[in-house]
Design a protein around this nucleic acid. Sequence first.
DNA 1: CCGCGCTTGTGAGCACGTGAACAAGCGGAA
DNA 2: TTCCGCTTGTTCACGTGCTCACAAGCGCGG
Lengths: 234, 234
Amino acid sequence: MADSPKRQARRKIPEATVSRLPIYLRSLLEAAGDGLPTISSERLAELSGFNAAKVRKDLSYLGSYGTRGVGYDVEYLQFQMSRELGLTKDWHVVIAGLGNLGHALANYGGFSERGFPVAALVDADPKVVGTEINGLVVRHVDELPAIVAEEDIAIGIIATPASAAQEVADRMIDAGIRSILNFAPTILTVPPDVSLRKVDLAVELQILSFYQQRRSGDGDGSASSEAAGSPRGG
Amino acid sequence: MADSPKRQARRKIPEATVSRLPIYLRSLLEAAGDGLPTISSERLAELSGFNAAKVRKDLSYLGSYGTRGVGYDVEYLQFQMSRELGLTKDWHVVIAGLGNLGHALANYGGFSERGFPVAALVDADPKVVGTEINGLVVRHVDELPAIVAEEDIAIGIIATPASAAQEVADRMIDAGIRSILNFAPTILTVPPDVSLRKVDLAVELQILSFYQQRRSGDGDGSASSEAAGSPRGG
DNA sequence: CCGCGCTTGTGAGCACGTGAACAAGCGGAA
DNA sequence: TTCCGCTTGTTCACGTGCTCACAAGCGCGG
């Protein structure tokens, strides 16, 4: 039960499903914490906030890891899902831009905990370069290629002002990074072989504002419950 | 040209479209900054990262604000879109939980700039209550109902640990808040008349990890370009 | 006034995601 | 061994969103 011997021909997992896998995984961790040996799709749906049919369909993309009449083995499913998500190893992260947000992200311990240790910090401002944050010395963005190689960086987080974001992204890509999480409020253009996701606080607030406005104006107040993850996304 | 006289019966705007409106608005601001009087759907598509057909269809939900053969009047469209998004007035925000992330959000100036001034801070920790952050004194979460009334709070931001998030959400809703942005890595349950959006950094990283893993493993490296805000999720 | 080029607004077809319903299949009890 | 309840895995129908394609319509030049 340790490893799947013949990893069956990789099915193509829909993007919408992929975006839910981390939620399932978190729910499984919760279930494991409660000491449950197995979990039904219905219970997993409750924990993750989706419906049971969707859960079963999503899990079926990973393989047939359930037992009819019983449910899913929590530990085994957790393992399979971690493997599929690539969480069996740590992915090193670099944060670019150490203003307010970048600073907070650098100090935020949650990344390492979840397998994404912050291995480097870069900035373009000479006044910031050289300062130490949470045990890491900020280096100049020009050093990115060397840093990525030395620290085996896989993921870049952009927390620069919008005006600098595209250039930083280009540099990251030049340096070999293929996964980027963008916090800058601007549209980035990247080659098709680079994964790009974005988190835009202002956009989220404006979407809330839209529904709030409608609610105030007339009687139609339906809005998305648990959206934005995306997809997307969201 | 100042205001729409007979606001035509509010069309139902698809959720996917709503999530793109803020991006269009930002692109319009950019165009306005360049001094362009009008903008074509094609140019707007470039700026916002979508395709022209989608832009036109999205804009058509707001009304027929374009001129065939010419394009859209930048200023006018900007105004209409702001109105639709409810950005003609400020929405006061309360931040709950002043740990690392909450602290950063409280110090982040971008909110007020974009019409979402942070009007109050609350926490449950007696050691935090009473401290001052960015000119605001942190109050106890028990005071929420009074705070919401006094400060006319419309939006709640949850930046607490996951374990406290649901209770804080319940309290916000009791206090009259109907729009919540959740940063805590947990699923919140809210009544159908409450809008809930979530930002989960760990989830975003794990999604990136999935595609990175696939890319390392085999030759299929296609991932979503500009996903997640989204729609759903995405 | 007339015709031409350009851009919007929309209708139709298609792809994707969702939810309900059900057959398949496992485990335990008798 | 056989039966029965339970849960998965999958099929099917539906709704939503996306893209293409094109008619409608505006402004300009002649």
